[in-house]
Design a protein around this nucleic acid. Structure first.
Length: 507
RNA sequence: GCCGCUAUCGUCUAGGGGUCUAGGACGCUGGCCUCUCACGCCGGAAACAGGGGUUCGAAUCCCCUUAGCGGUACCA
């Protein structure tokens, strides 16, 4: 077995189903997947659900869904540790027979006391091996009596475990710091360290690539591999991902679950690209890499040794880049599916039907370059999808609608629009420009109130595009509604800034 | 507390003794484009944690300090 990855290499992702798949786990999965795909080896999915208290089926489903969304397909599995009890029991028996494991009857109270004492002494807690000294006869009789006990692994005192981390380099470890650790609970279930070792061996895992939080587990697992007489896999420990405050990523950092990003309208390919660049880089400038390029170029030796902060803003930028680079019909389909998927979204029947019309593609075209995610696009497109506007953006209304003369001017704008022969960009521009000229107004003074009337906002696609998207009839309707709204507003308050001339200037 | 890992712009990073007056990207910012917003384009501010060594020469090697993170379970 070599460090180099070959077609014979077998890697795995082994999450515990105790919550959602967060970006850290997703990155670990991605790195394993890239490595496997890059060398033509196998990628195995294993669900580590030996903790019956915390593992849930929903969580398993979430992991599966998230992996599928990201396109991280596995060649074998998913295997469930909860269904592999006999394999662990067998390994346990072997260890018992060879004398490398023994029953321990120490109570939680005694252990707690030892822990406190160690703390007081300024040293790390290590089990003192009390029960290791027990004779087989006593062990048998106490077990016979039904005394609760765990099984501990007997660590060779004074020994050293060393391994060469493919990312971190040589890591010698004093086994005395471990003490005889537990490998089976008093309820008879196996502990993680044992299950990983048994599974990694039986599934013939050659390279274990996992989070940095597992480094301290590695010596224990190595000890078990050795005691069982099995070959050790190679290890690579990935630096962790941190939140903006440099703390370990958690719920308080906002969206951290992969499926949350999906819900917000991120694209899996952008997610993959971004995650790959968290702790790994190809060179000094390459930012965008396709899946194929990642597979081809990804390698362990260009992985950073320091933790990276998850920067959502940059992810948003990258997602925008991907969105903009897609062909329009593809974005349209994505948008349509995304809009319909959102359970919180109350698209009425009429607009839902319109999602299938060519018209929908035309409005998507207007917002792609203004949207970084599909969610943002949904919000930007809202004014086109509702039957009528419910409100006007406050600041914009104050600036562009509630000014003297605007209401009347909108009436004349409406007239001009009614008179346009061909309701397309050229004709509309000519009409509005000549209107502005006749009125002695800047073009913007004509456009802004119109934009507010049509979209309810001060920012939108180009006004001609907006007019065309609505069509003459709806455009005129909205102008009329805006005029009614303006008239319904209480007269300008007596704030010094707005003063009297405003009313008088009204023509 | 103890053990371990890490330390380049706010963030992701390039850099592996001279080519570094430290490069790219996000973000921020000035400008151009312009009916607004975006997009795009052009410019700007912004970093080698601190202190000792080693060396003719240190962002690069070593040590210490500091800071952050991880681990310290009958969780995984």
């Amino acid at each position: 077995m070599t460090t180099k990855l070959t077609k014979a290499s077998r890697l795995r992702f082994a999450p515990s189903p105790t919550g959602t798949l967060h970006v850290g786990g997703a990155r670990t999965a991605l790195f394993n997947w890239l490595l496997a795909r890059g060398c033509g080896g196998k990628f195995i999915l294993r669900i580590e659900d030996t903790d019956r208290e915390r593992s849930t089926e929903e969580s398993v489903q979430v992991i599966l869904d998230a992996m599928a969304w990201l396109g991280l397909d596995h060649d074998e599995g998913p295997f469930y540790q909860s269904r592999r009890g006999e394999h662990y029991a067998l390994a346990l028996a072997t260890l018992r027979e060879s004398g490398r494991a023994y029953p321990c009857f120490c109570t939680a109270e005694r252990l707690d006391a030892l822990r406190k004492q160690a703390r007081a002494d300024g040293t790390a807690f290590v089990y003192d091996g009390l029960c290791r000294a027990l004779g087989e006869d006593e062990r048998a009789s106490r077990i016979e009596k039904g005394e609760p006990h765990v099984i501990r692994f007997a660590v060779e005192p004074g020994s050293i475990t060393e391994f060469d981390d493919m990312i971190g380099g040589p890591r010698p470890f004093e086994n005395d710091r471990l003490g005889d650790f537990v490998i089976r609970r008093s309820d008879g279930s196996p502990i993680y360290h044992l299950t990983v070792v048994v599974d990694d061996h039986e599934m013939e895992i050659t390279h274990v690539v996992r989070g940095d939080d597992h480094v301290s587990n590695t010596p224990r697992q190595l000890l078990l591999f050795d005691a069982l007489g099995w070959d050790r896999p190679h290890y690579a420990h990935l630096p962790l991902i941190q939140g903006a405050d440099k703390a370990r990523l958690s719920k308080r950092h906002g969206a951290t679950s992969v499926l949350e990003f999906k819900r917000e309208g991120f694209l899996p390919e952008a997610m993959i690209n971004f995650l790959a660049l968290l702790g790994w880089s190809l060179d000094a400038e390459t930012e965008r890499l396709t899946r194929a390029e990642l597979i081809e170029n990804f390698s362990l030796d260009r992985i950073n040794r320091s933790a990276a902060v998850f920067d959502k803003t940059k992810l948003e930028w990258m997602n925008g880049v991907y969105l903009r680079s897609k062909p329009l019909d593809e974005v349209t389909k994505l948008a349509r599916d995304f809009f319909r998927l959102d359970p919180d979204d109350a698209l009425d029947l009429i607009s839902d039907k319109r999602l299938d019309e060519p018209w929908f593609e035309s409005i998507v075209a207007l917002e792609v370059e203004r949207s970084r995610t599909l969610g943002e696009m949904r919000r930007n497109l809202d004014c086109f999808l509702v039957a009528s506007l419910e409100s006007y953006e406050e600041k914009g209304a104050r600036k562009h609608l509630l000014k003297p003369g605007v209401c009347e001017q909108l009436a004349r704008t409406a007239e001009a629009l009614r008179a346009v022969e061909n309701f397309e960009a050229e004709g509309l521009e000519a009409a509005l420009r000549s209107l502005a000229e006749r009125e002695g107004l800047s073009f913007g003074k004509v456009v802004h109130p119109l934009r507010m009337s049509l979209t309810g906002r001060s920012a939108s696609p180009g006004i001609f595009d907006v007019l065309i998207a609505f069509g003459r009839e709806t455009s005129l309707e909205r102008i009329e509604q805006a005029r009614e709204w303006i008239e319904a507003q209480p007269p300008a308050s007596e704030s010094p800034a707005s003063e009297s001339p405003r009313q008088e200037q009204a023509r």
